[in-house]
Simulated assay, not measured.
Amino acid sequence: MKGTAQEKIILVTNDDGVTAPGIRALIEAVSPLGRVVVVAPDSPQSGKGHAITIGVPLRLDPVDIFEGIEAWQCSGTPVDCVKLARDKILHRLPDLCVSGINHGANHSINVIYSGTMSAAMEAAIEGVPSVGFSSLDFSFDQDFILSKKVAHTIAKKMLETKLPDGTLFNVNIPVVKEDEFKGIRISRQADAKWVEAFDERRDPRGKKYYWLTGEFVNRDSGEDTDVWALANNYASLVPVQFDLTDYKLKKQIEAEWKF
């Protein structure tokens, strides 16, 4: 890869696929900040979480769909895309990894399931400052103007700031008119989840099949959460960590349990 030593390399990925409108919007948002390289799935990979591909070959092919931007499509998961980008395309760690812009929310517990966030997390595991962007608008033809402004602002801040290794942000953007948007609010992950059920149906041959359904339930009344911020016309920015150790419980059982 050509480029000057001072040039920032920004890896762009997603989970909705390389042809999704959201990734084009994200490219437009961050391309003024450095050299953009895109590595994204060749088809939608929503809900894949941190899955990786094993047992079958991975394909990586160049695509010419973003003018002036080096772009590749990968047959694997969002995490596969980040791994291959580092090893086979960039041959170095990027200065920033941005993932999205996802079509749909990734606030609260959704961060666990999100391919958008897992791609960013994979880069963060390697020490790259990373961020996943999601819009609460699920529509394919949504207006990304506000989302692009938020993405540009945060990516610029990240490139200008010396951040700790493993920095990872989860950013969600509300569906709101620009003149009603209140800004970016640093938040915590809400205690909220999907109460799920499976809708049982039968196919024309009488065999059962199931559709996952559910209702989103917010059990958190705090005004410092991502869910509250989004409901009140803010974009939420949650610093995320991939160390899943429960240190409070660890301290308790160290004191109480004897082996």
Rank of each mutant, 00 (worst) to 15 (best):
G100V: 01
I154T: 11
E178L: 08
I10G: 00
P57G: 03
G17P: 03
G3A: 09
G22S: 07
S75P: 11
D191E: 12
E223H: 12
A5C: 10
P164W: 06
M158D: 04
T225E: 01
D61A: 11
S108Y: 07
A231M: 10
D143K: 04
K149M: 14
V36N: 01
C74Y: 00
K148T: 10
S134E: 07
Q241A: 09
A71Q: 04
K149R: 15
I9D: 00
A5R: 10
I9K: 00
K148H: 07
K250C: 07
G3R: 10
W194A: 07
M121R: 11
K156N: 15
I89G: 02
L33G: 01
V171R: 03
G68S: 01
W211S: 12
D61G: 06
K2E: 11
G68N: 04
N106Y: 03
I54H: 12
V63Y: 09
T213I: 15
S130E: 04
N110T: 05
K207N: 14
I23H: 09
A71E: 05
T167S: 12
S46C: 10
I253C: 04
A119H: 04
Y210T: 13
S43D: 10
Q73C: 11
I184Q: 03
W194G: 01
V38I: 05
I109F: 14
A5E: 15
S236N: 13
G76K: 02
V36L: 08
P129R: 04
F259S: 12
F259C: 08
V131M: 01
S118E: 06
D87Q: 12
L168Q: 06
F216Y: 15
V128I: 04
G100H: 00
V30E: 01
P129Y: 02
K193P: 03
L93F: 00
M158F: 07
E28M: 04
S75W: 05
N232C: 11
S135I: 06
D165Q: 13
E178V: 07
V175H: 06
E200M: 14
S108E: 03
E180W: 05
V240Q: 11
R86M: 13
Q241S: 14
N106T: 12
G68P: 01
P62A: 02
D80Y: 09
T13A: 05
A190Q: 08
P32I: 11
H91M: 05
N106D: 12
D95M: 00
G22R: 04
C81A: 08
W211P: 03
Q73Y: 05
G115Q: 00
A151N: 09
N14C: 15
E178Y: 02
L93H: 00
H152N: 15
K182S: 10
G47K: 03
G214A: 08
V150K: 07
V39K: 02
W194E: 04
T153S: 14
V12A: 03
D61N: 13
S236C: 09
W194R: 06
F144Q: 02
A151I: 08
L163R: 06
G132A: 14
S108T: 09
R205N: 14
A20L: 05
G3N: 07
R188C: 08
K177N: 15
D15Y: 06
D87I: 07
Y210A: 09
D87F: 03
H107W: 06
G49L: 05
I253L: 15
I125V: 15
I54R: 14
G100F: 00
K248Y: 13
G17C: 05
V128Q: 01
G55C: 13
F169I: 10
